[in-house]
């Protein structure tokens, strides 16, 4: 198993050491190490059943790991509920986005954390903040911030879900298959948004099946196979064939040199 490679100029946001998780007799995760640096997009790839979702749920506080350690910003933490994760600044954008179609963009972004004044909702201040957050993410395609989410396109919904996560001072944003249901133009918009999150200094963990998206947006790639981390490296160490080899067999005899001119060797076992 490769040692996580620390970039000299980046700070580690989240580190997992030997995290294991079993559901009854099924071992979903076995001694998984994972490093998520600040200001970088880490892509988590793996075949169906590789343990991607279990790993994400351990980080999001939905499951608690059976063993292993989680270090967030240099501190050992225990995550017992999604609330714990949210309090630390870990926000997850699920595949189903968890938006209420009948509420407008502002109402969705503040759902569960509404601001009030004298017991009544402070719509003006919420709208102002939502507007600022969307503008800071350069989400300009929505016509009106007061339109119901039902009237938005898939990409716009994704943008709203991301903006909702970012608005709560997230330090780590986890995205589960953000482009799975989107067309070409919409995918473009969401990938740009993911890059902007990293540029803002946030750590981003993105799960994707789509290799085009992964190579386009990720700085680092982590490959899971049957609950084990078989590789995690800078994106330059991989090409598509290597990823597919790693996902299916756990090793690859290829080196990325054949695929790209940077010539950095992959260190998979």
């Amino acid at each position: 198993m490769p040692e996580s490679q620390t970039m000299a100029n980046s700070h580690e946001l989240l580190e997992l050491y030997k995290v294991s998780k079993s559901f009854g007799p099924v071992q979903s995760l076995a001694d998984v190490d994972l490093t998520i640096p600040l200001a970088k997009v880490t892509a988590l790839v793996g075949d169906n059943g590789a343990g991607k979702s279990s790993l994400v749920k351990c980080i999001a506080g939905i499951h608690s790991a059976d063993s292993g350690e989680i270090v967030f910003e240099g501190k050992h933490i225990k995550l017992k509920s999604p609330r714990d994760a949210a309090d630390l600044g870990i926000e997850t954008v699920y595949q189903d986005l968890a938006l209420c179609d009948n509420l407008d963009i502002v109402q969705n972004m503040f759902l569960g954390r509404e601001r009030t004044r004298k017991g009544l909702l402070d719509e003006d201040s919420m709208e102002q903040s939502a507007k600022e957050t969307l503008a800071s993410l350069s989400v300009t395609t929505v016509r009106s911030i007061r339109q119901p989410v039902a009237s938005l396109s898939g990409g716009q919904r994704q943008a709203v879900a991301v903006a909702k996560a970012v608005m709560w001072n997230a330090k780590l944003v986890i995205m589960d298959e953000p482009t799975a249901a989107l067309g070409v133009a919409q995918t473009r918009m969401v990938l740009d948004l993911v890059r902007r999150l990293a540029e803002r200094g946030l750590g981003v963990l993105i799960i994707s099946h789509n290799m085009n998206d992964v190579f386009e947006v990720a700085d680092r790639i982590a490959v899971l196979r049957l609950g084990r981390m078989v590789a995690q490296e800078d994106v330059k160490a991989f090409d598509r064939q290597i990823i597919v080899d790693l996902m299916t067999t756990g090793s690859s005899t290829r080196t990325a040199a054949k695929a790209n001119s940077h010539g950095i060797e992959s260190k998979e076992n």
Binding site: A98, L99, C100, G112, R113
Partner: peptide, 10 residues
Amino acid sequence: GNGEAARRGG
């Protein structure tokens, strides 16, 4: 509108 979204919002 979406009970699950509300639940995740706390």
